[in-house]
Write a protein that binds this DNA or RNA. Structure first.
Lengths: 290, 290
DNA sequence: ACTTTGTTGTGATATATTTTTCACAATTTT
DNA sequence: AAAATTGTGAAAAATATATCACAACAAAGT
């Protein structure tokens, strides 16, 4: 058995549990841009990971190296070996799996979906959609179908924090006619509908449209019939090597929308502060969970 | 247009004619296993190339670097950049939007997450997890938290079609102690837990573990504490330019699992046929929609 | 063959960095 | 409150780098 020669990356990950908080933080920093950061001076690495110099020194020894230079020289060996290896031809995603492995095939397809989807999207329309969703003068209704209600709820959960006046409707439930009574002109519907397109969803969209609501539609490349009524359609490619369709791209657009709406709601000034706070928050989390 | 930023390798080759014999010898040695040898100590490089130390020092300056350390740090930069590149290639995703547009920034981050995640995943563990989930002798419990229950439900909805004996538990609900009564040794728990990790989820995992259940954990790069109890952990990078974390990569893994489990459930014989058919199918689709 | 000219290695040395350790205080975790 | 972890600042030890002068060498032209 010619076993995989156990890279340093592997070794780090294995030991991850035996490491202390600061060490783990350092480990992640090393893996973050591997192996480049490990090849620089120890001091730089320490600063990069926001840990002290002794922490680095202590850890490399914990990992079983004689010292930092020893660690580095093994890293270089590894790099040398990898450069010789012909495996990297087709960049596989999961390097340790053959390219026919489901992990690689699936990911290939998803990346392809993302590329196609983003390549064809209309940024203006997207921005308009975000603006509509961000406008808390309008009541926001979020609608999903049998499967897509999970995406709808995902959007709902986040919007709940960002703005008031939102409702999550499941088109497959029979309670939704209720909600429609209250719909006012100018309210916004975010509707998820991918194949197989659901009749209920279409009906719901029609009624909403009839009441003068704006409709933003998340759909697939073949476009749900709701498309006819929608003010803005965002269609994603959803084809993967599976018996089912992929919701990954749709979720990507959804998350992007969440982020964009958040920014709009907070105003330009706070945007940067938020980014900072995020980083800070992240650091705190590192400290908290050891 | 932003041309490729001229690697050090390029620079060396360009200057090759201006170099003297020993320097050329050195240059070739550097290119021989590039960039590894350039990242070691100057002395080692000199010995490797069978040239003297001053020759190396003289050459790096001739190449326009301030000194050997300068040369090295540029090499590291290059390596870092290259590691990021394989598919990203700085082609902006939404071509009609500027690269600072949220669509592009967000997608960049997500692709990066996917690459990191897949790069570090253990395919063996993944396969084992799929086998466990596919085994319909075992009852399958799917658990999600406040946000992640949407992912859990997504998995649940698909598994429902593929196999019997599954239950979707929401860790935030107070009904879950009920279910645990029925858990038998060998049953399987698929648990979603990303930061901020939920106490309920941990408790639930502990009880499941105590009853001898297998645990498969979907978590983030920092790993939920449930990790300690899990038989298999699948961790995803979740960092995006947003106030929230991204679930896209986790969903990608989930969908991949669904697809893999589906294949397993159809029996070994049909598996390959199906794969072929899939590929064929995929090709057809490519032709159709391009 | 004999310069001439430019290149290269040697050995030595000064400088600059880096690594490794310490002791101790601050902090966090148990 | 005790134990473990981490950062600080400093210093010592170890390496690495940059240079120098000079001799050895090689190639080119005379």
């Amino acid at each position: 058995m010619s076993e995989a020669p156990l890279t340093i990356s592997d070794r780090i990950q294995e030991k991850l549990d035996d490491l202390t908080r600061a060490e783990r933080q350092l480990a992640h920093s090393i893996l973050e841009n591997y192996p480049a950061s490990g090849l620089g001076p120890l001091t730089a690495l320490a600063k990069d990971a926001n840990v002290s110099v002794p922490t680095v020194a202590r850890m490399v020894q914990k990992l079983g190296f004689k010292g930092y230079p020893d660690f580095q020289s093994e890293l270089r060996e590894e790099l040398k070996a990898k450069a010789k290896d012909p495996i990297e031809k087709h960049d596989t995603w999961a390097e340790n799996a053959p390219s026919e492995h489901m992990l690689n095939r699936f990911t290939d397809a998803v990346i392809d979906n993302i590329r196609h989807t983003l390549g064809q999207i209309d940024p203006k329309g997207f921005d308009e959609a975000c603006a509509l969703v961000a406008d808390d003068q309008r009541h926001l209704y979020i609608v999903g179908g049998r499967i897509t209600h999970t995406l709808a709820e995902y959007l709902f959960l986040h919007m709940q924090v960002i703005r008031p006046k939102i409702t999550h409707i499941q088109s497959t439930s029979n309670t939704w006619p209720h909600y429609l009574l209250d719909v006012k002109e100018g309210d916004v519907f975010v509707i998820y509908d991918v194949r197989r397109y659901e009749n209920n969803t279409l009906k719901l969209a029609e009624m909403a449209h009839a009441q003068g609501a704006k409709i933003i539609l998340f759909t697939d490349q073949w476009r749900s019939p709701v498309h006819q009524l929608a003010d803005i359609s965002l269609s994603s490619r959803i084809v993967v090597p599976s018996a089912w369709d992929s919701a990954v791209t749709t979720m990507l657009l959804t998350e992007t929308m969440i982020s964009a709406v958040q920014n709009l709601s907070w105003g330009d000034t706070k945007e940067r502060m938020e980014e900072l706070e995020e980083m800070f928050d992240q650091t705190k989390l590192f400290r908290k969970f050891t």
